[in-house]
Structure formats: structure tokens, C-alpha cells
Design a protein around this nucleic acid. Sequence first.
DNA 1: CCTACCGATCGGTAGG
DNA 2: CCTACCGATCGGTAGG
Lengths: 196, 196
Amino acid sequence: MVKKKNTKGSAKKEIIKNSAAKLFKEKGYSAASMRELASSVGVEAASLYNHINSKSELLHTICYNVAERFISNIDEVEKQEEKAIVKLERLLRFHISEMLDHYEEVYVSDREWRQLDEPYLDEYRELRRDYRKRFSAIIQLGIDEKEFKEIDSNTAVMIFLNAMGAIDQWHRIVHKIERLALEDNFITLLLEGIKK
Amino acid sequence: MVKKKNTKGSAKKEIIKNSAAKLFKEKGYSAASMRELASSVGVEAASLYNHINSKSELLHTICYNVAERFISNIDEVEKQEEKAIVKLERLLRFHISEMLDHYEEVYVSDREWRQLDEPYLDEYRELRRDYRKRFSAIIQLGIDEKEFKEIDSNTAVMIFLNAMGAIDQWHRIVHKIERLALEDNFITLLLEGIKK
DNA sequence: CCTACCGATCGGTAGG
DNA sequence: CCTACCGATCGGTAGG
């Protein structure tokens, strides 16, 4: 009895979280109302609060879930003894597959994190900065080892990270090109540009 | 007397528009309130309406001003009889200089245009689609002429356009690198990747 | 899970 | 340009 209740409860929570990601993606966090979210889930607004605590908690969950996956991936990449080009390719391929598999969440975390409340806003800003720094260090390594051109590593990181947003359109045009072909287009365009 | 009033009036309007762009950029259009905007301009909220008609009009003005400049630039680029690589470089350099010279406006137009009201929302979506199509045609030309690698031209456009958002950081870190160096970093990374 | 409702805040107007 | 105020809508709660 208790078990059944819990299972049912967290399944509903999952549905709410996914609907929220979709809604926040389409309208933006601030413009999306809890009443819209409720109606997309099929209940009244008040009923949402049996499963979640607040609107801001939903955004928090989305943003931190995404951050956790990216951080644990770069942890692994750093550990491996590989050339910079291999590390860079792993970072990019991971990012692409995250965009393909958790599209709405990654999109929302990237564009709506500024709507987080303090102290999470500051903390999240720090997490992002930290990720960029570590990404930048990998590129700098490639420059020092003469694998890469002598570009500004911070600029390169930002170009790479922003370019990932391009996967947005892939979803909109309903998979006109294959997933693997898409990935290869990205790798070609972005990796060939940095190679010496 | 009339002339003075008009001059003064539109100067104030300009101040409001610029403050709005900055505010919309920092908090997002929906999360930004007219009371905040008023206080950043130094008046009460009600006083704003002596110079503007509505909040949505501000967003509309910002978005359409930017669109107009981008469209008239691609008009010119298309007219010129040049190789695809030259055309592409012009598109990118124009985009970079727009990001540097009209930072907040371009940023807002790119990330907040979804908050436009109908019928402008639909129209703006169409303008963006049209720009991407024309951009894509230029890249396809380069592929057909064997100047570029055989990548998917639509994907390439999205990568280029999204990559431009990277200039965001340049403003935040207060010009750690020179404007020209920044531009060259972009061109190197993005153009070298597509060249055959 | 719903009905009923709360205080706060929103964009915007009236009137001076 | 301000004070005073509007109806609408927001996130969220009480109580069943």
C-alpha cells in the first residue's frame, strides 16, 4: 500500500518535471504559469503542489540535474591520459548526445538558469564558470602541445559551447538528417577549425 | 518650442529603449518589470507611458531594428559577385561587429523574440527562417563549387549563428583581448573548419 | 485531487 | 512627471 503510493507519487512528479521542461523551453520560465503547467499535466494548479514544493524548485531540479551530468563527464575526461584532441572530441560528443537525449532539459538549463533564486543563482554561475575553465584548460593544453592553432582558448570554449545550441533546429525540422550524420557535421566543422 | 519638445522627447525615448535592452538582457523580457525599467531610467512607472505605448512595443522595436540591419546586409552580400567563402566571411564579420556595437539589442532580439505578441511573433519567425535559408544557400553554393566540405548546409548555418552568441563573454570579461583579435579568432575557427 | 481564495505584483490609465 | 488606482494574473495555501 505504502509502496504503491510512493511509486505513483514519483511517477507523477516525473511527468510534471518533464512537462515543465517542455513548457519552460517554449515560453521561458518567467512567462510560463503554473496554471498552464497544470493544464498540460491534466490537473488543477493547486494539485501540482501535492507533488512539488514550488515553481522555482522545478527550475532548480532541471538545472542541477544537467550540471551534474556535465561535471561528472568532464571529471572522467580529465582523468584519461589522452591527447587534447581526443579529450576535446569527447567533450563535444558528450554535449551533442546530451542535447539529443535530454533536449528540453539541457536547453532550459542553458537559457533559463538566470531565473534561479539566490543562493543557487550565484552557485550555478560558479558551476558554469568552473566548467568553462576546465574546458579551456584542455584547449590550452592542445595549443601548448602544438596540436591546435594559436587561438584564444577562452574564446574557443565559448564558440564551442554556443555552437551546441544549433542542435535546437534538428529537433524542429523533425530529423531531416540522421543522428550520426549530424554529430559528424559538428565534429568536422568544429574540430577541423582548431586543428593545426 | 515644438522642435525643442520633440528633440527632448525622442532623446528620452532613446534612453528608455536602451535601458530596456539592458534590462531585458539581464533578467529576460518577462521577468523584467516596467517598475524596474522606470527606476533604472529615474522616473515613476506611469511616466514611461508619456514616451512609449507599451512594454511589448519596446521588445518589438528592439527585435525589428536588429532584423532590419541583418536583412539589409544579406541583401548586399547576395548582390556581390564573389566566391562563397568571401560572402560567408562578410556575413560572419557583419554579425560579429553587430554583436560588438549593439550588444544588448542583438542579444535580446535573439533570445527574447519568442515573447513577441501575434501577429508579430509569426512574422518574426518567418523573417528568421528566411534569413537562415538565404545564409544556407550561400553555403550550399560553396559546397557545389567545391570550395567547402560536403557538410549539411542547414546544420552549418545553425552552428555559425549560434557560435556568434559567444561574444557574450567578451563583454563580461571586459575586453581581455582586442576586438580585432577576437574577430580573427572567430573567423579562423569557423572558416577553417568549413574550407576544403 | 478539487473549490475557494489569499496577498503580491503586474501592465497600464486617469487626472492633474 | 507624479499620485492614486484599476482589473488581471501570478504563485501558493487552507480545508476537505
